[in-house]
């Protein structure tokens, strides 16, 4: 099904540009064309299809599903719904307040917030199309696991006292009912609006990710990675995570970089740890969460994620290496 993209890349690199097969530039161009075409076609298709079902999932709906559930069920719902519910990171704060106000435990709320950027349906399909279902399943399981453990830990440590006091006093208004045009035409219009909105927001991350991937693929020799990021270097995973912390990209944008790294022989655990560190922690989100979390909790959050990503990397390298 994806042969078309390979064919397009072959044609562009070797025929249109007349590059010599196997040359560095040809390799980079081939990677760039194939990934750009494939990722954007999939991105548009998935966002459009999800847009048609818009009424199924929103943070408000998720709040309703989780509210009043037993703790175990609440965690399960939080991480799985966190993975498929799209929300802009600028909504983290109202979402956080809305969840707590509904009596959803802090740990469950944090589990949702941790999982949401790490795993989403768009990234999952694109990851699978590029790197296969096995790697995708490992990535998803790791992402859900980190969210689950983070939430349970926050629960066990009773970090509620490190949430800003005003948060507990807020009373939420009745959930706003927004009229939606649910006819087929209305859904299609909405879905198409989602496509332009989301692609408009993501395209730059994706193009930068593909460009970095293409440059790595074409120009960086394999020996370099073997020497510094090989399976025998115990510092490779921690360094990869620390390198990823200040970087921020959407989950979709980091996939081409991961693809190039895997192709260069970097172990899967190291690559997944790096991906998670780039996607799961960002400075803007930290600044946003400071509005509701006191500094000790924020520090805990950052340290937990860093350690968790390193553990995920080391563990996966041991399992699959």
């Amino acid at each position: 099904m994806f042969d078309l993209f390979t064919w397009l890349a072959d044609w562009s690199a070797y025929h249109l540009l007349g590059l010599e097969q196997g040359s560095r530039l040809a390799e980079a161009v081939h990677f760039f064309v194939e990934d750009t075409a494939k990722i954007f076609v999939l991105l548009v298709a998935i966002v459009f299809v999800m847009g048609l079902f818009r009424t199924l999932l929103s943070p408000e709906k998720v709040r309703g599903y989780i509210e009043g559930r037993s703790r175990g069920m609440a965690y399960l719902l939080a991480v799985t719904l966190g993975a498929v519910t799209p929300f802009c990171s600028c909504s983290s704060v109202p979402l956080f307040i809305g969840f707590l106000e509904a009596g959803i435990p802090l740990g469950v709320t944090m589990a949702f917030l941790i999982t949401s950027p790490l795993v989403n349906e768009v990234a999952v399909v694109i990851l699978a199309s590029i790197m296969g279902w096995e790697m995708t399943a490992v990535y998803v399981a790791a992402g859900l696991g980190v969210g689950l453990i983070g939430g349970i830990l926050i629960d066990r440590l009773h970090l509620e006292r490190h949430v800003e006091d005003y948060v507990w006093k807020i009373r939420m208004g009745a959930l706003a009912e927004i009229e939606a045009d649910s006819s087929l035409g209305g859904r299609v219009r909405y879905a198409w609006g989602e496509v332009t909105d989301i692609v408009g927001r993501l395209w730059l991350y994706v193009v930068i990710g593909i460009a970095i991937g293409a440059a790595l693929h074409g120009y960086v020799p394999e020996e370099l990675f073997a020497r510094y990021a090989g399976a025998d270097n115990p510092f490779a995973v921690p360094v990869a995570v620390l390198l990823g912390l200040p970087l921020y990209s959407n989950a979709t944008g980091i996939i081409p970089v991961a693809e190039a790294l895997i192709a260069k022989g970097v172990p899967i655990g190291t690559v997944i740890a790096f991906m998670m560190s780039v996607v799961g922690l960002s400075v803007p989100e930290f600044i946003m969460l400071r509005k509701v979390l006191k500094p000790p909790m924020l520090v805990f959050f950052g340290v937990f994620l860093t350690v968790a990503f390193i553990v995920v990397g080391v563990l996966l390298n041991a399992l699959f290496g």
């Binding site: 943070p59 408000e60 909504s91 109202p94 979402l95 807020i170 208004g173 009745a174 959930l175 509701v292």
Partner: peptide, 15 residues
């Protein structure tokens, strides 16, 4: 103001 925002029953911004 976050209290005002959720006071409108809105959890996803912008509202």
């Amino acid at each position: 103001d976050m209290a005002a925002i959720v006071g409108y029953g809105v959890m996803s911004t912008p509202g």
